[in-house]
Design a protein around this nucleic acid. Sequence first.
DNA 1: CTGAAAGCGCTTACAG
DNA 2: CTGAAAGCGCTTACAG
Lengths: 333, 333
Amino acid sequence: MSDEHTRRARTVTRADVARYAGVSTAVVSYVLNDGPKPVAPLTRERVLDAVKVLGYRPNAAARALSKGSSDMFGMLVVDSRNPFFAQLCHALGEAAAQDGRTLLIVNTDREHTTAADQIHDLTARQIGGLIIADLLTAAEQALVENLGIPVVLINQYAGAVGVPALGADFRDGARRAVEHLVGHGYRSIAFIGSASIFDDRERGWGDALTAAGLPLGARIHAPFSYEGGYQAGIELADAAERPRAAFAASDQVAVGLLAALHARGLRVPEDVAVVSFDGTDAAEYACPPLTTTAQPMAEMAREAIRLLQAGDAEPGYRAFPTALVVRRSCGCE
Amino acid sequence: MSDEHTRRARTVTRADVARYAGVSTAVVSYVLNDGPKPVAPLTRERVLDAVKVLGYRPNAAARALSKGSSDMFGMLVVDSRNPFFAQLCHALGEAAAQDGRTLLIVNTDREHTTAADQIHDLTARQIGGLIIADLLTAAEQALVENLGIPVVLINQYAGAVGVPALGADFRDGARRAVEHLVGHGYRSIAFIGSASIFDDRERGWGDALTAAGLPLGARIHAPFSYEGGYQAGIELADAAERPRAAFAASDQVAVGLLAALHARGLRVPEDVAVVSFDGTDAAEYACPPLTTTAQPMAEMAREAIRLLQAGDAEPGYRAFPTALVVRRSCGCE
DNA sequence: CTGAAAGCGCTTACAG
DNA sequence: CTGAAAGCGCTTACAG
């Protein structure tokens, strides 16, 4: 232990290892990288022993320079504080680590910089691949399609893109969430969520209503934030004809919504029933506990990493099925 | 735009820039790094122009190899999904970016690896500094003290260490939170939080009680998680002599606590009043909204980055004052 | 199976 | 103020 400490100051290099093991530096690389050349078992042992004794750690910068690619994957996300993205980033970090990769996460909600800038910055760091959890402009799409490294878009809605993309089946998930509400007998069910025409959750909400022969209820567009949900909740609570139930497009929005309803003295689910989307931890401890549409975050994370590792994945969209987690906010129990 | 794209494939290097500008590669470095040598204004212009025209981005790996240090700062955190750490990491990323640095965040809650391993991995990446938001063992302390790069510990409790450390004034913050509860007239006030003897929040709770001539109330030790808070809440709710109020050592624990109290049919603050600690966004949208002790996350983040940049900061602890944010869970309004 | 050597793209003394 | 050149620590054809 203390050996290792004193030694680290002078930085052990591959040359030291080679000298100690009595081999060339090339051979050290061969054993550490398992190739590209075979190494005799005994030589291999000597090298591994030298590595251990000297406490050698390969210099990642040198490796990245030499290979033209580091073992890091870049990750672009709007705001890693958002509980859903926090969990998604964590799952991606896990999946990456399992493949010996490290995630470099960058938030795009920063001022004085653009997504394009951040992508360029990331590529200048020689990242081996890039994951983007954000909606891209046409210019940004063109940029990532020609980046020269694997790119995968995550948390995406269906739609054609020039790179592999994946996301939960938003439309189907929303439809089933609303069907559940319909099953409770509620006949006026509001939608609270993004104004983006790409977001299929609003369509799924409409699907369920239409299939049940119900009119489309109120539609409140709100940003994906606590505050967005809160404002929407106030609007909903104060509406002349208050909906009997609401589908919230994210857990965070739903938590904001609950706060607003409580502030207005409304009970959930007795006055307004709620079902949300995401399946974050926070939903379980909301009050009341939220019935929510769980996204398979770990699976999506693993698939995203797999696509990056493959490197030559087909462009196109992959939908992941969701699962309704029933708790009390919808009126069950 | 499309120029830049087609060009990126072949990777523009500093040599290309030098050739285009009609100078040596050294001069390109001098202008890009503002030193170490002065450059004539006109030469400088030519270089900057070449950089722009060619869409040149310095290779970070080459730079890190050459300098022996990258522009990344490493960050070790138990679990970046925890709302408090999510906000802290975000603030640190902001502060780092403002200084032209990038944060590489690593979670220590991973299996099959140790904090020491992760620290070594980070240093092998040539990080320019390391921030640790975790309690260290003696061995880990010895390790970071001899790392050869600036290290700062954050979210720490007071105590002597061989490196700069900072954290909210836990004891004072907890004391004031509990004083607020005392001010409401509650005479039995429980503590819900960490079992760690390093965590001064329990001491602060005791300070306030003692100062008010009140006996120490129930003390429920729980892990820092929703579930930890929930279990503690069940225990509290079912106690033979249920406390009239509780101080929760984190917002996340408090949210779990609220869920348990509601599950037991108890009202907050009417049956049990609650004050918590952290000041995360989630506290504002809890039900009822949580009165909480806000940590100055942005300030602490900026200071941590500043200490890293300084490089030669004095070891020792820096306490940051907290601020009580009054909302409804304590009984106010 | 092993080694000598070129090369990755920077930085920075050293010399002019 | 500018440049030629060594060096950072790896990887990987190329030769043996």
